[in-house]
Design a protein around this nucleic acid. Structure first.
Lengths: 108, 108
DNA sequence: GCCATATATAAGCGATGACTTATGTATGGT
DNA sequence: ACCATACATAAGTCATCGCTTATATATGGC
């Protein structure tokens, strides 16, 4: 039954509260792993693993600068989520048009 | 770290592919547990457990009719998801206004 | 009341997940 | 070259998940 859908990794990535917190933190701006480790009460490897999951889901990017690796939100990453929501357009008929416009704009 | 957020149950509910498939199936229309069990290749208890999780997340309703229990999508259930998305408005500035309108309309 | 159907709950099991500590790999400074 | 810092990966542990089978709880028809 479970043929891996495109939403699979993103939903699973966001299912974990720590990961959502990390993501939330990154929306405040790019941050290196050591900064993130300082902000949260989990070990550095745990942070790296979470970031890896977020990256695998396409939700974040990374960039190396010297010894630091800076992570930042990948704006296009949440598109699968929007797509998934749009698929259930039938349940909010009035809003479909707006969602469609949103999707069009995100394509570019 | 993990103080149970409002998005918690909904993200976790949607993290499972079988559960998303069930939800998808319900968007085609209300269905009883035995129908859903027939559609998928998992046991009836598994279906009931998934439906319970979806219900716990506010994504579906149920209604009893005789011996059957019919489940249907709760349209307001995806609002937390929209809310969560809206929170990251900063990343798609052009779309914020539209998302806001969408949210306003869902409130009623 | 009795039996069949429909669903929910219980109990158990193997797989996966989220962490930990320990170690490996880059990079920079001296 | 050496050492410290920054990050990733490995390995192990404990909890949670998704499933199963077995059983309990409706409801309806006779």
């Amino acid at each position: 039954m479970p043929t891996t859908a495109p939403q699979d990794r993103i939903f699973q990535a966001l299912a974990d509260p720590s990961r959502r917190a990390l993501f939330e933190s990154l929306t405040r701006g790019e941050a290196a792993v050591n900064e993130l480790t300082a902000r949260f009460d989990i070990s550095q490897p745990a942070v790296s693993q979470h970031l890896s999951a977020l990256r695998g889901a396409g939700l974040v990017n990374r960039r190396r600068d010297g010894r630091h690796v800076y992570y930042r939100v990948e704006p296009s990453g949440i598109k699968p989520l929007i797509d998934w929501l749009a698929h259930y357009r039938a349940f909010w008929p009035q809003h479909v048009a707006r969602l469609d416009q949103l999707l069009e704009r995100m394509d570019k």
